[in-house]
Design a protein around this nucleic acid. Structure first.
Lengths: 303, 303
DNA sequence: CGTTGCCATAAGCTGCTCTCATGATCACGC
DNA sequence: GCGTGATCATGAGAGCAGCTTATGGCAACG
């Protein structure tokens, strides 16, 4: 059975007159494209393309097939478009409220998937420094959906997205990393000066609460407003920082330790009751695509 | 990206009003169908089907999508049809000449694949008892393509299909099978009465030739005109038979031994020069699909 | 003649598509 | 009300398809 993908590949090769350029456009490698064209030719039973040294041209067989291939691709696009219009998903604007750290760590992958599936639905993002701010804004009707910790006394739909894990960041050569098997008792860092968050920043409260549970109040070497700065400053030697694991990029150059006991924060997507199809669809994409615990740290953080 | 298969599945479910019946028609299981409908609904972002206890009905979203799905499927079929018509592959008659044993062992799988891909191209089969007969018929222009051993002094295209392996068949409890590790020196069977082939049958010559090389002339308990009978008669105890491995069905109830030295016969597809697209396409299918060495004996027969 | 451009092929990895097994829900008949 | 049958959903596992990386072959060009 020939596939829409094969037809799309053929159309692109013909338009570009080159396997190599078509492969680039399609975001696959040339051998994959070459192979699929062969598969398609075998399904038909005759060559569709004539490979010339510096170009590619259609055979008469290929010329007969091409317009129907284009039509099939157009029909497939129209089927999706018509279905989405019927479901109210084709266009519009979706308002998303969240925390700074979430918009840095968890959201990007979900937003990427969403834009791919719904290119004409605009996203408007509201960022908040603190959990309480976020909830208050939602109660006042700020956005269609919020992404944050479970909201107390919320009467609309609440969808669990996963549990964020916090990690301690230090320079690669910090002596605390020499033993402990990738874990650290926060009490060991009681005398350090910490990379802390600015007052009113949601993670400041979390750091205070966690250190208090470990028996000390952290002194700050620096207080940052930007979640993304904290791991960089810590790796540079300004002191330990406690950050959500999901804000660390792959290949982050620093010492990453798990606090013992673990510091975790569940994340949810919550919206108002009687939500529209767009919001529902977005929450579905979030639940599927949000990178709450990034793959490159998942193995290291599991018990 | 939604696929033609998903659309085909949806159309069939809607026409049948039942996942179970649609799955039967499509020759897949119900869970596969159920899963693909879910995948499609996720790609769209909204339900397409409403599952009722004894039936299935379309949602408004599904109703919007369906006509375009039908159109895409129709365009895909037209693309294949148009391409094949341009290539001269859509209809017609193909004449195939071969040996009795080949039409029994090697050809069926290739013909099955051919009929699937080219349902409107009729096959006319000419069977011959002997290699020389086959070649003479082809020289006289009998068929479009012949399947048999390499033809001497043939001036058209010759395509190798693989090498047939011959095996000795005996009853399961024959003492020759007790040692030898699945192999047998034909000389050991010199005093036996053989299940032989009728004079003029191509395999009669081959048996005579092979036994002469082992130093004896076989006596015949029976001479059969039918290649398919030989293994059955041998397994029933009328004597050893030498048959192409590919005529043995899976689960054949008999002792199967490899002659030592091995007895092999290459097979080719040969046709006249300047052959038409249909013949070329058929030879391609043959080269890909012909079961020269069946999978269930392949491991046992390898060195 | 050497270099560059471009497609084909092989090997290996990952994700998709299927099957089988099982569970949940509903309708129907006794 | 209970048992049975029909039907779709979900989970686990196997095999296959589709991809990537590496490499080779061929033709054109300087």
């Amino acid at each position: 059975m020939i596939t829409l993908r094969q037809m799309e590949y053929l159309v692109t090769v013909v338009e570009q007159g080159s396997f190599t350029r078509a492969a680039e456009l399609l975001h696959v490698t040339q051998p994959a494209l070459s192979h699929q064209m062969r598969v398609l030719e075998r399904a038909v039973g005759a060559p569709l393309l004539e490979r010339l040294p510096r170009s590619v041209r259609l055979t008469p067989t290929g010329r007969a097939l091409l317009p129907h291939a284009r039509a099939a691709l157009a029909d497939a696009r129209r089927s999706l478009c018509a279905a989405r219009q019927a479901a109210g998903l084709e266009a519009g604007e979706l308002e998303v409220a969240t925390l700074y750290s979430v918009s840095l760590g968890v959201l990007p992958s979900a937003l990427r998937a969403w834009r791919q599936a719904h290119p004409d639905v605009h996203i408007r993002l509201f960022e908040h420094r603190h959990v309480d701010e976020l909830l208050a804004a939602m109660r006042e009707g700020q956005a269609d959906v919020a992404v944050g910790p479970p909201p107390p006394d919320w009467d609309g739909p609440v969808r669990a997205l996963g549990v964020e894990e916090f990690v301690v960041v230090l320079p690669t050569d910090d002596p605390v990393g020499a033993d402990g098997g990738g874990r650290v008792d926060l009490g060991v860092l009681a005398e350090r000066e910490w990379v802390h968050y600015a007052p009113g920043h949601g993670l400041a409260d979390l750091v205070e609460r966690v250190c208090a549970a470990a028996g000390f109040q952290p002194r700050a070497s620096v207080r940052t407003e930007q979640t993304a700065s904290a791991p960089l400053l810590a790796a540079a030697g300004l002191g330990p920082a406690l950050v959500p694991a999901n804000v660390l990029p792959p290949g982050f150059d620093g010492l990453v330790l798990r606090p013992d006991p673990p510091v975790r924060r569940p994340l949810t997507a919550y919206s108002r009751r009687g939500g529209d199809p767009l919001t529902t669809a977005f929450v579905d994409v979030l639940a599927r695509e949000a990178t709450v615990l990034p793959a490159h740290l998942r193995d290291a953080l599991q018990p």
